[in-house]
């Protein structure tokens, strides 16, 4: 009993350390300002955003429904009016749209006419998996976000959030005994692994680069804010 909670704590600490290693590494990368990178967004100043059903490129079928529960809340903190996802997806489902894949080539104007949305958010689950290697295991959640205008169909903002969590038992001492302990701890961690909290972290990473909307105190004042430029490996 107690052991599991210690294991859990260890996993948490590891995540935190990993996140900061990520931050410090990324500090070496090129910095850009929001204003330079997303000029179209500042031009259009969208107020309301409709979240489309995620596109799932991962091997986990359940990832789509689970991930969808994590995005509305952080997006609202960026200061936008976010349409209630539970309602808008139901309406889209009635129209046979279960997946944003089907909407990709549609004129997005429809979303302005029907919902009153200034922009729509496409999300793609790139990775939602666990790589298990007996004494080590890595959990990865990777999300691509793209905000598109319903006025011009132009891309107003895009960024990726990726979280990699090491679920291995850490340092358990040397020798065969240590390795066995590590394997057991890794197995326990992997069995308990829950992706959703990490998906939330990935969202916050990606959304930290999104210029603020009308309901945020820094609305219109964040053009000079810097963030790490991502080299996109689009396929």
């Amino acid at each position: 009993m107690n052991k599991t909670s210690i294991v859990k704590m260890k996993a948490c600490l590891l995540l935190v350390i990993l996140t900061f290693i990520g931050f410090s590494l990324s500090a070496c990368a090129t910095m850009v300002t929001k204003g330079d990178k997303f000029p179209l967004l500042y031009e259009e100043m969208p107020v309301s955003i409709l979240i489309l059903p995620p596109m799932n490129e991962s091997t986990a079928a359940e990832a789509k429904d689970y991930y969808a529960t994590t995005i509305q809340e952080p997006l609202s903190f960026s200061g936008y009016y976010v349409f209630p996802y539970e309602i808008t997806t139901d309406i889209l489902k009635m129209e046979g749209i279960y997946d944003a894949e089907l909407i990709k080539d549609l004129p997005l104007q429809k979303f302005r006419e029907y919902f009153g949305a200034d922009a729509v958010l496409f999300t793609t689950i790139k990775k939602w998996d666990l790589v298990y290697m007996v004494i080590a295991a890595n959990l990865t959640v990777s999300i691509d976000c793209e905000l598109k205008s319903t006025k011009s169909n132009a891309t107003l903002w895009q960024y990726n959030g990726t979280v990699v969590v090491d679920l291995s038992g850490g340092n358990t001492g040397g020798g065969i005994a240590g390795l066995i302990v590590k394997a057991v701890v890794t197995a326990i961690n992997s069995a308990m692994a829950d992706y959703v909290p990490h998906a939330r972290t990935a969202n916050y990473m990606a959304l930290s680069t999104l210029p603020y909307g009308k309901y945020h105190p820094l609305y219109g004042k964040d053009r000079e804010q810097q963030f790490v430029e991502q080299t996109r490996l689009k396929q």
Partner: peptide
């Protein structure tokens, strides 16, 4: 605090 966007709507739904 301002009620978060969509909360009234979802409850209504």
């Amino acid at each position: 605090l301002r009620i978060p966007p969509g909360v009234y709507a979802e409850l209504g739904y």
